[in-house]
Nucleic acid binder design. Structure first.
Length: 480
RNA sequence: UCCUCCUUAGCUCAGUUGGUUAGAGCAUCUGACUGUUAAUCAGAGGGUCUCCCGUUCAAGUCGGGAAGGGGGAGCCA
């Protein structure tokens, strides 16, 4: 019985009329005791179901409240009203699930994102989040399509890891030992993890990169796409404790190949979303424009969301070295007039958010790829350049959200790598399995990590990362 | 973790120099109307003014503290 239903998106896009159809969905509004705006999540557009006066009992009509789930059978006809081309003239209406109008928190009106965040389990039922999560789906699908079409192997890296030497951030501990103080102890009073489930101390992964490198040393081209966890006490609009990361790792690629891959990848998935979710992105663009009207003129975006996405797809990213970026920043009027909170004094310091934003949003007005950072502000596995001062790193900075990609050519020379690990006090014995890649058939290779939620933010224009993941995890928050 | 702003009805918000019974729009309920498009019209119900302590004859309003939330910073993706 249920499989006979027509999706509302199909029914509306197929504009023919005069046929019988069954639809199921949730009531958005019930107007004039006759007109049901019905939504099934396939599109933001509602189907107008007409319950002609006198055709239905009051007992049924009373239950057509906002949020109620119904099944409707009837005839699709050319609409007698102006708002839509076709409508469904109901012959039978069945209530599948009631929704108490006095208690259901969603109303046919605009809600604040902050309020919806408190009822994140219900926000899928709104237009904004419907659009956001349909776009998120398309982007996720496009990630796999892009790499699959290029012959990459999708590698599942572990969620639970033993290494705590990656230095990518604070980790969540994984244990089955009791927390009431009765856990087995060593002689010095520390917890004896030999007695723990895995016989050692374990954590949730902060990155699949090191495991990805192992596979790249056999398959040549791999990518990961999975959840990662950071226990940092970050309270910002662009950090989550649980987020999804895409990490390609490619043998025989150098830094430039790596940049080319990242740029092609970003353009591909954005184009895919534009081509497949035009309606949703246009809806989000309009939402964003209304939000922008609340802001003063000088804080508004120059481009609409759709213009911004088209621009990114059709223009080359600006590529420059860290050293060149420092020069531009140092010589900028912004720096000379001391408008930066942190003034650029010289070479060597990490760039602050304000500097990245200046380069991307003021100076170049496009995505920027920064390369060859000082070795002291980057990770141990990045390949040392000939100058001995910089490493073959690259960060991609996007307007509005900052760093969206971090990557590098990896240090494939065992002696250089172990030397860097010593300098940075990374225990080599714990990463012996990783160092084996350099012992047995090492080769030049490169890869990057892309924060999936930041990509979704960029494409949907949503300002807060908590609004682009279905069930956000952040400090003091793991409800739903 | 730091800086900053905010917390009044289900939601979004007003609330004067501290002063009687704290308001509006939307939502909800009742009724009317019936081709509506976040329907319209009339009426009704709905409040521990986030919590605790203090100042005062008197606190939604002033002071201190706590909790929750927004924005920014750091960490990063």
């Amino acid at each position: 019985m249920f499989n006979k239903r027509v999706r509302i998106k199909e029914l509306l896009s197929n504009e023919s009329a005069n046929y019988q159809a069954t639809v199921m969905g949730w009531v958005r509004t019930f107007r004039n005791s006759q007109f049901i705006a019905l939504n099934d999540g396939s599109t933001n557009n509602n189907l107008q179901v007409v319950a002609s006066l006198g055709d239905f009992d009051d007992a049924i009509l009373k239950r057509l409240t906002t949020g109620a789930c119904i099944k409707v059978e009837g005839e699709v006809i050319a609409s007698l009203g102006k708002g839509q081309k076709v409508e469904l003239k109901a012959s039978s209406i069945e209530i599948l699930g009631d929704s108490d109008a006095e208690k259901f928190p969603l109303q046919p009106k605009k809600h604040s994102l902050e309020f919806l965040r408190e009822i994140a389990h219900l926000r899928f039922k709104t237009n904004t989040f419907g659009s956001v999560f349909r776009v998120r789906h398309s982007l996720a699908f496009a990630v796999h399509k892009f790499f699959n079409d290029k012959g990459f192997v999708y590698l599942h890296t572990p969620i639970i890891t033993a290494s705590d030497a990656e230095g990518a951030g604070e980790m969540f501990r994984v244990t089955s030992l009791p927390l009431d103080g009765t856990a087995p102890k060593n002689e010095d009073g520390s917890i004896n993890y030999k007695e723990d489930f895995f016989g050692r101390s374990t954590n949730l992964t902060v990155s699949g990169q090191l495991e990805g490198e192992l596979a790249a040393m056999a398959f040549s081209d791999i990518y990961t796409f999975g959840p990662t966890f950071r226990a940092e006490n970050s309270n910002t609009t662009r950090h989550l404790a649980e987020f999804w990361m895409i990490e390609p790792e490619v043998a025989f690629n150098d830094l430039e190949d790596n940049m080319n891959l990242a740029e092609e990848f970003i353009k591909y998935v954005i184009k895919y979303a534009i081509d497949n979710n035009k309606e949703d992105i246009e809806f989000l663009a309009q939402r964003l424009e209304e939000e922008e009207k609340q802001k003063p003129q000088n804080e508004r975006n120059e481009m609409t969301l759709m213009e911004k996405l088209d621009f990114v797809v059709n223009n080359d990213f600006e590529r420059l070295t860290y050293t060149e970026a420092i020069e531009i920043l140092k010589e900028s009027n912004h720096n000379k007039k001391k408008k930066f909170q942190y003034l650029i004094e010289g070479w060597g310091a990490d760039l602050q958010s304000e500097h990245e934003r200046y380069l991307v949003e003021k100076h170049f007005k496009k995505p920027v790829i920064l390369t060859n950072y000082p070795k002291d502000i980057k990770s141990f596995y990045m390949r040392m350049n000939e100058d001995g001062k910089t490493v073959a790193a690259m960060d991609i900075l996007a307007p509005g959200i900052g760093e969206i990609v971090g990557g590098s050519q990896r240090e494939e020379r065992l002696d250089r790598l172990t030397q860097r690990m010593n300098e940075m006090k990374i225990p080599a014995e714990e990463l012996n399995w990783y160092l084996d890649t350099r012992r047995f058939g090492s080769c030049p290779h490169a890869g990057f990590g892309l924060g999936f939620e930041r990509l979704v933010q960029f494409v949907t224009g949503m300002g807060n990362i908590r609004d682009v993941i279905p069930f956000p995890r952040y400090p003091k928050s793991a409800e739903f």
